[in-house]
Structures are given as C-alpha cells and as structure tokens.
C-alpha cells in the first residue's frame, strides 16, 4: 500500500508512477493491465498537477495505491477547486477530435473498470480488476 503526498511537479509524479508500476510488476500483472494502470495513473496525475493545482509548487498531490492480487485501486487528490467531470466534453466526437487536450477522463474510464470522483471534484478513485487470464491459471481456463 502506498500513501504519499508529492509536490506539484512532473518529476515527482514520474517517480511515484515508477514506484506504483513496480508493484504491479512484482504482483505479476500482465502487460495490458500494466499499460492500463500506467495510462490512467498518468492521466490522473496530469489532471491533478495541471488543472487541479495549476502547477502551483506550494500545493500537493496526495496519491494512494493498493496493488492487490485481484485488483488495483488508486486515488489521486489535488488541492484545487474541483470540477464537474460531467461538464467535460466528449473528446471522441468529430468536432473535438482535433483538440489537443481533454482526453484524460475518457481514457481513465476506458482503461479502468471503475472510476469515480468525490463530490468536491478534486479526487478521483479508480480500480482496475486484474485480467482473468492469470498466468498460473492459464492451464485451468
């Protein structure tokens, strides 16, 4: 279990991402699950650092990660004013395809099994259930 506050800083975020991904490797998650967790974690951290904390160095991002045998749950909380995730336009519509940003929430929802926000809109909690094709069970499926 990881529970840390990091500065609003891409290098610190990158270091923490590495730490959490190492746990998924140690727990035997497959490549697809690791890609999904990595992508969603990066998107949550980008949103927290850029949109939540506005790159303000005095603010912190709190991250908890529980990498278990069956699933991984990650919570990312910033010190920003929060937002309404329902107000974010769908980046996959034709009129939004050429927008360079706005894909983070959609990607978290696409790659994780559960994604939810607190009422304040400054904390995202997401869960990835481990792929059922566990290597040690492969012969039994």
């Amino acid at each position: 279990m990881i529970d840390k506050s990091i500065p609003t800083d891409l290098t610190a975020a990158r270091r923490l991402t590495e730490e959490i991904l190492s746990l998924t490797v140690a727990s035997g998650y497959n490549e697809d699950d690791r890609f999904a967790i990595r992508l969603s974690l990066e998107e949550a951290l980008i949103n927290a650092i850029k949109h939540g904390n506005n790159f303000e160095p005095a603010k912190k991002v709190r991250v908890s990660a529980d990498v278990g045998a069956k699933q991984t749950t990650i919570t990312v909380c910033d010190e920003g004013a929060g937002f309404n995730p329902a107000s974010v336009p769908d980046p996959t519509t034709d009129e939004n395809l050429e927008k360079p940003s706005g894909r983070g929430i959609m990607l978290m929802r696409a790659y994780m099994d559960e994604v939810s926000y607190n009422d304040h809109g400054n904390e995202v909690r997401m869960t990835k259930r481990r792929c059922t094709g566990l290597p040690h069970l492969a012969g039994h499926n």
Partner: peptide, 8 residues
C-alpha cells in the same frame, strides 16, 4: 527490483 524499466 529496478524501477527504471517502465519509462523507457
């Protein structure tokens, strides 16, 4: 275990 392998 090394941490360096994820972010090539």
């Amino acid at each position: 275990m090394t941490n360096s392998s994820h972010n090539t």
